[in-house]
């Protein structure tokens, strides 16, 4: 954080009741430190564990700056991230800028597949939404906000498990625009075990559905804001319709092969998906100057990785509609 190419900023660390030695380490960092351009002040808020949203709100409320950048404890910003992101606030209608999240702990099958997913699945969608100035999720690892937009939106809420999606929808509902800046990069640690990945996706899916349900008025009434209705429908499609379609298609080809003898259908389905994924991954890798070694993963990406994710999404959706109790849980971090 001290290496940012930006002159006027301060760092606020929020220790949300950590049980490890976070408090002692953070306290040793409080004070003025030499940054790349200027002296950077670091403050610390130690609070009782109340969840990510309360921690972020504590930091935001303590800050008296016009713009606040929220990030996760397991993320690292690229030196130019703040500089690239903050310039979009020249437009007075921009309430927030979503950054580009990249997986830092690669070189494992599961984390490489997630790296590809972040590039192809998440960032490309955000680039498209950015044309409408309506990015639907400002990612937790990097989101730069105009503080007034957060105030208008009512800060982070505790009533969903995807506080970033919820705040984004609230900012859009408050008639602010949200931009995506691909050069504002945050490196984050992705789950390296399947169980951890499922835990993360379970929370994301249920959190997003909770956010959609919370804003269902916008979903069903396009006269309030057509843009926001379109954004919510795209979230609804991504969270519910697409996973259902994907699972149904797979089941169709399995049944067709096993019971009706159309065994060759599944290979054409897989080839079709792999070609589409290869092309879009190639485009994203070139435009984002990413590692070309991720390209071969497109062979297994849609047919297998996304199937695992979609089954998890479908199960989580069922649990959400059944109202099964959930908790935040804790993701294991290796501290890459």
């Amino acid at each position: 954080m001290l290496n940012l190419n930006y002159s006027n900023y301060e760092i606020i660390i929020v220790n949300d009741g950590s049980t490890d030695d976070t408090k002692a380490i953070a306290e040793s960092m409080v004070g003025y430190h030499k940054g790349t351009v200027s002296q950077i002040k670091i403050s610390l808020i130690n609070k009782v564990n109340g969840g990510k949203s309360t921690a972020l709100n504590a930091g935001i409320k303590y800050s008296d700056a016009e713009f606040v950048l929220c990030m996760d404890g397991d993320s690292q910003l690229s030196p130019d991230s703040l500089r690239f992101a903050v310039r979009h606030f020249k437009d007075a209608k921009i309430g927030a800028v979503a950054g580009n999240v990249k997986v830092v702990n690669r070189k494992k099958l599961l984390t490489d597949l997630q790296a590809l997913e972040y590039i192809e699945g998440l960032n490309m969608a955000r680039s498209a939404q950015s044309y409408l100035r309506a990015v639907n999720i400002i990612p937790g690892p990097i989101g730069l906000f105009r503080k007034k937009a957060i105030v208008d939106a009512g800060y982070y809420s505790r009533d969903t498990f995807a506080e970033d999606a919820d705040l984004t929808l609230k900012i859009l509902a408050a008639d602010w625009n949200i931009y995506y800046e691909p050069r504002a990069i945050s490196f984050t640690e992705a789950p390296s075990k399947l169980q951890q990945l499922l835990k993360q996706r379970y929370r994301w899916t249920r959190g997003i559905i909770q956010s959609i349900r919370k804003h269902k008025k916008l979903l069903i009434n396009p006269t309030i804001s057509f843009r926001n209705t379109a954004i919510l429908w795209s979230m609804f499609y991504e969270a519910l319709i697409w996973p259902t379609m994907n699972i149904a298609a797979h089941l169709f080809f399995i049944i067709a092969a096993l019971f009706f003898g159309f065994s060759s259908l599944i290979i054409f389905w897989w080839i079709g998906l792999a070609i589409l994924d290869f092309i879009s991954a190639l485009y994203c890798i070139i435009t984002e100057k990413e590692e070309s070694r991720l390209l071969p993963y497109t062979i297994v990406y849609r047919m297998f990785f996304i199937l695992v994710i979609d089954i998890c999404k479908a199960m989580s959706t069922i649990e959400e509609f059944l109202g099964i109790r959930m908790t935040w849980g804790k993701l294991e971090r290796t501290g890459v």
Partner: peptide, 18 residues
Amino acid sequence: STIILIATISTFILSIGA
């Protein structure tokens, strides 16, 4: 096709099991 079919069925079972 047989390889893909077996792999897909295995992925299904693995996903639900996981």
